[in-house]
Design a binder for these strands. Structure first.
Length: 166
DNA sequence: TAGGCCATCTGGTCCT
DNA sequence: AGGACCAGATGGCCTA
């Protein structure tokens, strides 16, 4: 190897060689750019896919929540809050029902043992961490039902009992 | 027109 | 190294 090649771009380097080196660098930079670009495009594709899956799961959740004929589609945040309160209300309903039931006939049976916990250990969605016995008390979760049977998504109690509140 | 909701892009971080 | 996850930014659409 000649001495001039060791020092990069020294004054002794022939012009032609410098030019070739510049072209090579430009080529690798362009290659790097396209590589980065294609990785980014692939990552975008995956991210889009991931969000589609997330939305599909959210749609599934919506589909099992009680809705009303003229109901508009729940937003994402509404769906999550509604589901949270719905689960809490169902668990509370079971708890109340269990309190009124006679003790199970066969003590050994574990049927119904899943009902025995006083209330669901509801994971709180709220930063303030409301207790398991009631859902949602923080500002973010301001949709806490006062009545366990009240399935709703955030508006005041219905005027008439039984009327769907939304 | 402002505000809410949403989809998408993007760069950073963590995990396998 | 590559993928998953996350949060911020941006722009479009819709409604009051």
């Amino acid at each position: 190897m000649p001495a001039e090649a060791a020092s990069s771009g020294g004054p002794a380097e022939p012009r032609e060689r410098r030019r070739r080196r510049g072209r090579a660098r430009a080529r690798t930079e362009a290659l790097l750019h396209t590589l980065k670009r294609s990785r980014r495009v692939k990552a975008n594709d995956r991210e889009r896919n991931r969000m589609h899956h997330l939305n599909a799961a959210l749609d599934e959740l919506r589909s099992v929540l009680p809705t009303f004929p003229d109901d508009t589609k729940l937003t994402k945040i509404e769906t999550l809050r509604f589901a949270y309160n719905y689960i809490w209300a169902l668990a509370e309903t079971l708890r109340l029902a269990e309190q009124r039931l006679p003790p199970p006939p066969s003590p050994g049976s574990d049927a119904g043992s899943w009902l025995s916990s006083a209330s669901p250990a509801a994971p709180s969605l709220c930063a303030s961490g409301s207790g398991p016995s009631s859902p949602a008390t923080s500002e973010d979760c301001a949709y806490a039902p006062a009545d366990p049977l009240r399935i709703f998504r955030g508006l005041p109690l219905p005027a008439a009992p039984g009327a769907p509140c939304r």
